[in-house]
Design a protein around this nucleic acid. Sequence first.
DNA 1: ACTGGCACTCAACCCACAAGAGTGCCAGCC
DNA 2: GGCTGGCACTCTTGTGGGTTGAGTGCCAGT
Lengths: 340, 340
Amino acid sequence: MLDDRKLEVLRAIVEDYVSTREPVGSKSLVDRHALGVSSATVRNDMAVLEEEGFIAQPHTSAGRIPTDKGYRLFVDRLSAVRPLSAAERRAISTFLQGAVDVDDVVQRSVRTLAQLTRQVAIVQYPSLTRSTVRHVELVAIAPDRLLVVLITSSGRVDQRVVDVGQPVSEAVLGDLRARLNTASVGQRLPEAATRLGELVHDVAVAERPVASMVVSTLVEAFSDERADERVAVGGTANLVRFGDDFDRSVRPVLEALEEHVVLLTLLGEATSPRMLTVRIGSEVPFEELSSTSVVATGYGSGEEALATLGVVGPTRMDYPATMAAVRAVARYVGRTLGDP
Amino acid sequence: MLDDRKLEVLRAIVEDYVSTREPVGSKSLVDRHALGVSSATVRNDMAVLEEEGFIAQPHTSAGRIPTDKGYRLFVDRLSAVRPLSAAERRAISTFLQGAVDVDDVVQRSVRTLAQLTRQVAIVQYPSLTRSTVRHVELVAIAPDRLLVVLITSSGRVDQRVVDVGQPVSEAVLGDLRARLNTASVGQRLPEAATRLGELVHDVAVAERPVASMVVSTLVEAFSDERADERVAVGGTANLVRFGDDFDRSVRPVLEALEEHVVLLTLLGEATSPRMLTVRIGSEVPFEELSSTSVVATGYGSGEEALATLGVVGPTRMDYPATMAAVRAVARYVGRTLGDP
DNA sequence: ACTGGCACTCAACCCACAAGAGTGCCAGCC
DNA sequence: GGCTGGCACTCTTGTGGGTTGAGTGCCAGT
């Protein structure tokens, strides 16, 4: 049904439409791509492609534009993974080089990604639940009040005050501190949580209430969802491009992008750093964003993702370039943030 | 030169132009405002106002629109401070009611302000240098390494590790901790810095190096500029309004608003919570924003400002309403964040 | 000092027409 | 059977001209 040439025609249409932003006709197609056949033949192929739903015409006697289904086929089977230019690589690494802390890394990543893809970039802060415990600290700020400090591998610091209800001696505190650290340091937060839970039983009965309160505070800090939800957005100016139907629908898109929930849903479940998620047009789970596409991937040092990043742009985007950029930035960020 | 009626005419022009977004002519003016004179008279007045540079015509035989100078006069002398409606007040207070921490307050303020004014809202995080010290904590994480924790009145927590180069006994640590707290708690950060500086001389010679290192770490934390620079932006979707010349220039504005430096400059030196800064069109210190106006004010509990917030919108904005909204939100935020 | 009236200007709108790009289809060719 | 050239047809886009109407400036009159 779809022989090689028809696929080739589809690819040519996608490429031309992406670069010119105008419906592409059979004539200009054969001019720009050495297809080896006449425009009439291409027209026939296009008729088939249209019947199959891969392309459409905005109105009779205009050129064709790819449908979401067409882009999907293009992304899945027709696009080569275009490697980044050396200049682009250099840009990424120098941009991220100077970062001083997690916040800075994320900010710079957003910028880099937005500039590279000329689209809206979204970067999720490293997820607490995926990072590991680096250090736990206990401080008595009053005889019966403790300051609990949690430092994670991603560099985030969280601290809370606990009223333990009974005075705690320095010795008990030191013992508890040591136990907490040996049990949790180096662990993923969820595992650390279970380890800490078991730990309570090993403590002398007299100190058990204290230990249990401290542990539950820590566990609460582990699963603090707010930290998980932090997201940085950049390059929204790229939404506005001259001469674009996308242009009229900028407002809803901007509005959607101010909703944290939307951003998080867009990035989706953190995929493995090796995988790239591409959602095209109607595949994007928001009505307002149905004329946009989302390219996202997880980042992290190991196999599993620390968090997710990606870009949002018009369905008519340069997928190979965008995918390459997203993947490259994710790799660099993963390296930078992975195990500092 | 400018008698009362001419001022009245200017005010009518500003109000009509703001609400209709179309150049306003003499005829429609006399229709909508009971000026008590004929359109011909108004025409004469308008000719004078134009000569003086308060209004201009986009092209011959069109209505007049206010110039920046016209808006300036309007803001300075012609606009009454329109009090907020009860509903608006309620909206603000319920919006800010549920906030759980500083981050949350700021996020909610941005949203509230953006919705209320239908413009782009900017809220600066409470400035470290303007808040006070609530608590200082020292923790030995190794014999010669200390964790220094600083908690400020705005709820921000900052901690750093210091290598003091010599072992520190628990007794010395306790002494130092007590001295640090009595010297600094309740002080503004800059004053606290000087107090701490003096404190070093009172310490026994043997511990002076340690004290000095801890103090300099704290002082560094005080003046950490990054914390000062945090700014939240919201309501960018409001930039896009149908049928608007502003519409074409959205891109540069969006770009400008992604620059932290720009945002901070726009908010300007934190003014007293009682003062409202209005910068109109060309008065805004950025070329790209010369068709926008900025309304900003400081917020805080006392006389002096904790930080600044404001909105950015088209020069053709409803100044009285915007100013009232900015002032009201600032007041609520100041109350919420001032002395929690 | 204000008003009514009048001539003038100019953007905006409408309409009609031509140009151009693109299509679909068919008959013919290899 | 698949490809091509040709042709009639469609529909958007651009252009020119005429009209409309809001708005102005000015002047003579109250």
